[in-house]
């Protein structure tokens, strides 16, 4: 167990180093200039050169990289090149919103997607199955940007139950109120994916020998479905959710924009557009750490569901 953990940690450090190095180099290789963003399009070449030198961007890329690694090792995330604010401060200020939205969307997606997936599998090639499959296809294909505006039209304009723009309230009630529509918007997409994964996993498990044996020895059908089948069918669903959570944090950007919510996705996109190297490096580092943590949690959950995974590790 300890050996396994040490191995995981080592892999994590290697992953972090690789990803941050890659991002460090790639943002400097693509055209674009943080000095230009900071000084605007009226800036003269002289001013740009002076600023690049002040930011250390005129040094060889290897020197810049070593400075960056030294800062990271000391836990210093630096200041944003474009607005001078602390990168860590910026990250921490938006992280609660991002986590809130991600987990609410996962909750809605799982609560809706799993039963629908099971239903579709049980009624395979019948009306409910067709309905669920068409619905989930629509959910996957519909851009979050468009569905978000539809939700706003329906539930903030015609039925004014929710605000169009995030009011920024800080109490639990206010936070929940402004979370509902964006979480539903993103949750429906998650549900669409979960439904499909759940359905195919259930169909696969239902054909296994042990399920036939259970039925043959007279185990009641609900027990066969909800205990014997579901537990094993959950494995691909949990793996999918683990992978998708990482994607969700980044891809929530469209939902964040439509519902004017602060978020990590928006921060990353803005930093990339402005070629804000320090912010981008810090955010990618944080994002990678989040992904590693999510992967570890996913593994732990898989171990809980299926003892074989646990035992295999030991």
């Amino acid at each position: 167990m300890w050996r396994h953990l040490a191995q995981r940690l080592l892999f994590s450090v290697v992953t972090l180093t690789l990803v941050t190095s890659f991002v460090f180099v790639i943002v400097r290789v693509i055209p674009g200039d943080p000095a230009q963003t900071m000084l605007g399009d009226q800036a003269s070449q002289e001013a740009l050169v002076a600023l690049r030198s002040k930011l250390g961007l005129d040094r060889p890329i290897l020197v810049q990289y070593l400075v960056f690694l030294a800062d990271v090792a000391r836990g210093q995330w630096g200041l944003s090149m474009t607005n001078g604010r602390s990168v860590l401060g910026e990250l921490l200020s938006v992280l609660p919103s991002t986590l809130e939205l991600t987990f609410a969307a996962l909750l809605i997606g799982t609560a809706l997607g799993m039963p629908l997936g099971v239903l579709a599998a049980l009624r395979r090639n019948r009306m409910p199955d067709y309905a669920v499959r068409i619905g989930s296809l629509a959910g996957i294909s519909f851009p979050a940007f468009v569905s978000g505006l539809f939700l706003l039209l329906a539930f903030a304009i015609y039925l004014p139950l929710f605000p169009v723009i995030n009011a920024g309230g800080d109490t639990l009630g206010e936070r929940l109120h402004q979370l509902v529509l964006p979480a539903v918007n993103l949750g429906l997409i998650v549900a669409a994916y979960v439904t499909r994964v759940m359905r195919s996993a259930m169909l696969e498990v239902a054909q296994q020998d042990y399920v036939r044996t259970a039925r043959a020895k007279g185990v009641p059908e609900p027990v066969v479905v909800w205990i014997h089948c579901l537990r094993n069918a959950l494995l691909p669903v949990v793996t999918f959710l683990g992978l998708y959570t990482g994607i969700l944090i980044g891809s929530a950007v469209l939902t964040e924009i439509v519902f004017s919510r602060p978020g990590l996705g928006k921060l990353i996109v803005a930093a990339l557009n402005q070629r804000d190297y320090t912010t981008l490096q810090g955010l990618v580092l944080a994002y990678t750490i989040i992904l590693i943590v999510i992967n570890m949690i996913t593994d732990a959950i898989l171990g809980l569901i299926d003892p074989r995974i646990r035992h295999y590790r030991v």
């Binding site: 723009i165 004017s260 928006k266």
Partner: peptide, 9 residues
């Protein structure tokens, strides 16, 4: 508010 659609609404 980045989205023009959201600002309009």
């Amino acid at each position: 508010i980045q989205s023009q659609g959201s600002r309009d609404l």
